[in-house]
């Protein structure tokens, strides 16, 4: 009962900070905050995919599928933008479902390579077909989110702060859904498929179906993040979703760690702050890929379980301290 109240208080406090945050930032920092919010959804969805043990190199391209679909649906068919975003997510999930048939004949390293190839094929289609994808130049003048008013707040989507609130709500709900999935028996089955697919299958788990389910769900959320991005920046092209972006997603995820839900989110936030504050200020912006590569290697070498392991270490250290007060029992 008591912990419920503290949890609620912590949640409300954290929410208030997130709402107040953009007001302390400059205009350009607010723009970065929007990208960060979208990227949080990208890495969280990427982790959902890795729950069953498969690492894809096509995730950013799938995100692009959502972006292209939502942009085209709103531009060509005049579909109301929030609805087109949802349809973009559904399209990304459907494309993932189609890709799962060839891809899930492979496992591990071969899946990794296969997913990369599949992603490059999709990017090639975008480049090759001017109609409807706009070729190498991509799609310009994507419809912005239509302004609306919810009584307490009037959304004006020329302001990054408004888009931030909108993205925050979408990403918040998405994270909540992913969290519930992971904590459910479905999530437990994902873990089982990852750690010991033979035993899972002997227990009656259709391993292939669960791998596909994780892939399709993760791709849906990636597509949603792509749609959020498209309607914010207003122009997308095949290079918006190239392998360099994928390396960023991988770096955030690996540096953060995939053992916990918050690991990749932590990685994304910490590295973005590092990037924007340290690198940009110091004028190292051009060297971002290089520095990210370095960080990736260093963290694999010296922090193989990611930033989350530091948090968990700190928490268990605190708990151990608490325990020692009560019972003078040496922990380990």
């Amino acid at each position: 009962m008591h912990s419920r109240v503290t949890n609620l208080a912590a949640f409300l406090g954290f929410g208030a900070i997130l709402l107040a945050l953009p007001h302390t930032l400059s205009f350009s920092q607010q723009e970065i905050l929007v990208f960060l919010t979208i990227n949080v959804l990208v890495v969280a969805s990427y982790r959902l995919l890795t729950l069953t043990g498969e690492w894809s190199l096509g995730h950013v391209v799938i995100m692009g599928v959502g972006a292209y679909a939502s942009a085209l649906l709103s531009k060509r068919l005049g579909i109301y933008v929030p609805a087109s975003m949802l349809l973009g997510a559904v399209t990304a999930a459907m494309v993932a479902l189609a890709l799962s048939f060839p891809l899930f004949r492979m496992k591990g390293f071969y899946f990794l390579i296969g997913s990369f190839a599949a992603g490059e094929i999709i990017r090639l289609l975008w480049k090759r077909f001017r109609e409807p994808f706009g070729g190498p130049k991509g799609i310009k003048k994507i419809d912005p989110m239509p302004d609306f008013d919810i009584g307490i707040y009037a959304f004006d989507f020329f302001e990054p702060i408004s888009y931030y609130y909108f993205a925050l709500a979408v990403v918040g709900v998405s994270l909540w859904v992913m969290w519930r999935i992971e904590r459910s028996p479905v999530g437990l089955t994902f873990h089982a498929v990852h750690w010991q697919d033979k035993l899972a299958e002997a227990s009656g788990v259709n391993v292939r179906a669960y791998r596909t389910l994780a892939f399709v769900l993760a791709s849906g959320f990636a597509g949603l993040s792509g749609a959020l991005l498209a309607h914010y920046i207003g122009t997308i092209n095949p290079n918006s979703f190239d392998v360099e972006q994928m390396v960023f997603v991988l770096t955030w995820t690996i540096v953060g760690g995939t053992a916990t839900f918050y690991g990749p989110i932590l990685g994304c936030v910490v590295l973005t702050i590092l990037n924007e504050i340290v690198l940009r200020e110091a004028g190292f912006e051009q060297m971002r890929p290089l520095i990210y590569g370095l960080i990736l290697i260093l963290s694999v070498l010296f922090m193989p379980k990611g930033l989350e392991s530091l948090v968990r270490g700190a928490l268990s250290w605190r708990n151990a301290g608490k325990k020692k007060v009560g019972e003078t029992e040496a922990t380990e």
């Binding site: 519930r180 999935i181 459910s184 028996p185 479905v186 437990l188 089955t189 089982a192 035993l199 899972a200 227990s203 009656g204 788990v205 389910l213």
Partner: peptide, 14 residues
């Protein structure tokens, strides 16, 4: 996990 077949998880219900 052993109970998977008797009580199949349902993602929507979850």
């Amino acid at each position: 996990i052993g109970t998977h077949m008797s009580f199949p998880p349902n993602i929507f219900a979850a």
